[in-house]
Computed example of a mutant assay.
Amino acid sequence: MEWTGRCERLPIARLRDPLPMSSSYGVEELWHLTHGMRRLVLAESLRDTQRLQEVEDELAIACRKIGSINHLLYYMPMTYS
């Protein structure tokens, strides 16, 4: 991988499995490579946080529904025909 002096979007797989490190990489190349990896980790972390919040919201809704069902089952007077 050769640094061309311009920003490029690398495929995520390339950032997850970077090429073997070489002593020929310069400081600028290494900075850009690690910066890209850091951005990937932060983006994935944000997605994980958002998904966790969605699951927590879904759980809260399910708990309210279960509470309503329990109320109907145990606190409503029984009517016999």
Rank of each mutant, 00 (worst) to 15 (best):
1 M>K: 11
1 M>T: 13
2 E>Q: 13
3 W>K: 07
3 W>H: 04
5 G>F: 02
5 G>L: 11
6 R>T: 07
7 C>Y: 09
8 E>A: 10
9 R>I: 11
9 R>G: 07
9 R>C: 06
10 L>E: 06
11 P>L: 15
12 I>L: 08
13 A>Q: 13
13 A>H: 05
14 R>A: 11
14 R>Y: 08
16 R>H: 00
17 D>G: 05
17 D>K: 12
18 P>G: 01
18 P>S: 13
19 L>H: 00
19 L>M: 09
20 P>N: 00
20 P>W: 02
20 P>Y: 01
21 M>G: 02
21 M>D: 11
21 M>E: 13
21 M>S: 11
21 M>R: 14
22 S>G: 08
22 S>W: 02
22 S>T: 14
23 S>P: 06
23 S>C: 04
24 S>I: 13
24 S>Q: 10
27 V>T: 15
29 E>C: 02
30 L>A: 04
30 L>H: 03
30 L>K: 11
31 W>V: 12
32 H>M: 10
32 H>L: 13
33 L>S: 01
34 T>M: 08
34 T>Q: 07
34 T>G: 02
34 T>E: 08
36 G>W: 03
36 G>F: 02
37 M>I: 12
37 M>T: 10
39 R>N: 07
39 R>L: 05
41 V>C: 00
43 A>H: 10
44 E>Q: 07
44 E>S: 05
45 S>H: 05
46 L>D: 09
46 L>P: 01
46 L>G: 04
47 R>F: 10
48 D>N: 05
48 D>Q: 08
49 T>I: 12
50 Q>M: 14
52 L>I: 11
53 Q>E: 04
54 E>F: 04
54 E>W: 08
56 E>W: 11
57 D>I: 00
60 A>S: 05
61 I>V: 13
61 I>Y: 06
61 I>R: 03
63 C>G: 10
64 R>I: 06
64 R>C: 12
65 K>Y: 07
65 K>G: 04
66 I>Y: 14
66 I>Q: 09
66 I>A: 09
66 I>N: 13
67 G>M: 00
67 G>T: 09
67 G>E: 07
68 S>N: 15
68 S>A: 12
69 I>A: 14
69 I>Q: 12
70 N>V: 09
72 L>H: 06
73 L>W: 07
75 Y>R: 15
76 M>A: 15
76 M>D: 14
78 M>D: 03
78 M>P: 00
78 M>N: 00
78 M>Y: 00
78 M>V: 01
79 T>C: 12
79 T>W: 04
81 S>C: 10
